[in-house]
Amino acid sequence: MSVQMRQGLLLFLVTLTLWLGSCTGTPPADEAVDSSPSAPTEEEVTVAPEPTDPTAGLPVLEGLATVELVVNGDTIVLEIDGDDAPVTAGNFVDLVERGVYDGTVFHRVIREPEPFVVQGGDPLSKDPSVPARRFGTGNFVDPETETPRYIPLEIKPAEAERPLYGKTFEAAGISASPALPHTRGAVAMARSDMPNSASAQFYIALGDLAFLDGNYAVFGYVTEGMDVVDGIQQGDTLESATVTDGLDNLQVNP
């Protein structure tokens, strides 16, 4: 298979795994809703409003943190990077500390025709009353506000002082590489086609996926246990997620 054909197929898989069905809700009246057969059918795709201050009211990680995931009795160690992705990293660490990910399911695992991603973290997937066909349509609902928490797309260009918020590199006309690229073991947020729609679902790259750079927010990397990630099968449970270091770097902006 040629390089162009492989890239085209992988881009199609991106649409199925990271785009459609990663976030749901009720969209504003002036937002178009994807009505293609692959889109969620139970609820409609939504988008968070453009933030004036992208960190306002959101958890922010000021520095690094270490998170351990236990899957099939084995441990995966993640280094979470709040230096280059403070909002995305802060959201993840906060959800880990809340226990949101404990008992969730890896609902999409794609290794063919080439290693792609394992995706999980949907809070709906640990509810036994929710059918498996709906896994991948859920968000984190803040118990204080009783509304879903969305975070803005956050990607920092290499050598830049701060991240770009709310736009892909292409939309912003940026040709630089990201500070956190999609190399094997990268941990990033899944979202719908709306840039500011990431909530809780995340994925781990099974190979180098440079064509995702500038489009999805990487916020950390697997530092130990990539062999465990390689062994994850669709339907496997994330038994526990624990912040083992750096929790004191987590702040919540007013």
Results as ranks from 00 to 15, higher is better:
M1H: 12
G8P: 07
G173K: 07
G220R: 11
A32K: 15
V93E: 04
E114W: 01
G25N: 09
A186Y: 09
Q4W: 06
D83M: 09
L9Y: 08
W19Y: 10
F211K: 04
L64T: 07
V100G: 12
D83F: 12
S192R: 00
E161L: 10
L180W: 06
F219W: 09
I155A: 03
R149Q: 11
M1I: 05
E42M: 13
L61M: 08
P54L: 09
R149Y: 04
V3H: 09
A176L: 11
A188Y: 11
T88C: 15
V222Y: 05
A65R: 05
V3Y: 04
L78E: 04
V71G: 03
V33E: 06
G57W: 09
A210R: 15
G25K: 01
G136Q: 05
T104L: 11
P178G: 05
S240E: 08
G225N: 04
V67N: 03
T147N: 13
A85V: 03
P113C: 13
A190E: 00
P157S: 12
V229H: 11
V243D: 06
E154Y: 11
R6Q: 13
V105P: 07
K167N: 11
T223M: 02
V141C: 07
I174C: 02
D193M: 12
L9H: 08
F106Q: 07
A65S: 12
S22G: 07
T46R: 01
